[in-house]
């Protein structure tokens, strides 16, 4: 039981500082805008894609900095990330909302806030439904009082998925998943003794994250087919590789 807190702290070590992530994404967007003329400004959707793209770079960096992930061969690292990138993006978004988001607003990685009602009134049916689903999940997670330790465990559970096809070292991925699962269970039991099934409640959110992430991919792919997605991005590469 005394080993679990150390293990959780080890998982937290590779977490990125929100302020640094925000600065990096902002700097990248500003570089992009500065390189364009007055009549060549990016539209809102393209800016959102570039924000997601930069966040994705950050998530790959996060995985790379993790001791447990480093133990895997690059081939396995590739298939795991290729399989869960959209879930990691959704989880990252959810955590940001739980931590910083105000009621009725979406908090972006750049620190900007957008009212949900504005998005719903301007976006199409699919995007509106996605935003609503994500906001419902944010409410559920807020009600569960998700903490940093629990959030990082969910990220690891999504990343170390032994069910991913063509993983070579399945045993190691499975062992890591089991270890994180146990640490999460012990943590929820110790810190939320009044809440008898917080662990179960947290795990039940993962299929919802998965479902939203699949809808995100489908939406992005449709926009890609319409030629709306910026080229030469990690986001497009992930989408392409998964679909090919």
């Amino acid at each position: 039981a005394t080993l679990a807190p150390n293990f959780l702290n080890q998982l937290l070590e590779s977490e990125q500082d929100e302020g640094q992530v925000c600065s990096k994404v902002l700097a990248s967007l500003q570089r992009e805008q500065a390189s364009r003329g007055k009549h060549d400004r990016l539209n809102t959707f393209t800016i959102m894609c570039k924000m997601a793209d930069q966040t994705l770079f950050g998530l790959v960096e996060w995985a790379r900095n993790s001791t447990l992930f480093k133990e895997l061969k690059v081939e396995d690292q590739m298939v795991l990330l290729q399989s869960c990138w959209s879930e990691l993006l959704v989880l990252d978004h959810l955590c940001r909302q739980v931590t910083y988001g105000k009621q009725g607003c979406i908090y972006l990685v750049t620190g900007q806030q957008i009212e949900v009602s504005t998005i719903i009134s301007q976006a199409g049916v699919t995007l509106s439904s996605l935003v609503s689903r994500a906001q419902d999940l944010v409410s559920k997670l807020k009600a569960l009082h998700l903490d940093r330790h629990e959030f990082v465990c969910l990220k690891y559970l999504v990343l170390f998925n032994p069910d991913v096809k063509s993983v070579q070292n399945r045993r190691q991925v499975e062992q890591t998943q089991e270890r994180v699962n146990r640490a999460l269970m012990e943590h929820t039991q110790q810190t939320h003794q009044g809440h008898s099934d917080k662990f179960g409640q947290l795990l039940l959110r993962l299929p919802e994250v998965r479902s939203i992430s699949l809808q995100v991919e489908e939406y992005l792919f449709q926009r890609h087919l319409q030629g709306d997605l910026p080229c030469n991005s990690l986001l497009t590469e992930m989408l392409h590789t998964k679909r090919s």
Binding site: V60, Q77, M78, L234, E237, S244
Partner: peptide
């Protein structure tokens, strides 16, 4: 055969010490 994600491979493989 599946397409290889060259950008992801580069990001995972790159040497940060140089």
């Amino acid at each position: 055969k599946k397409k290889d994600n060259a950008l992801l491979r580069y990001l995972l493989d790159k040497d940060d010490t140089v």
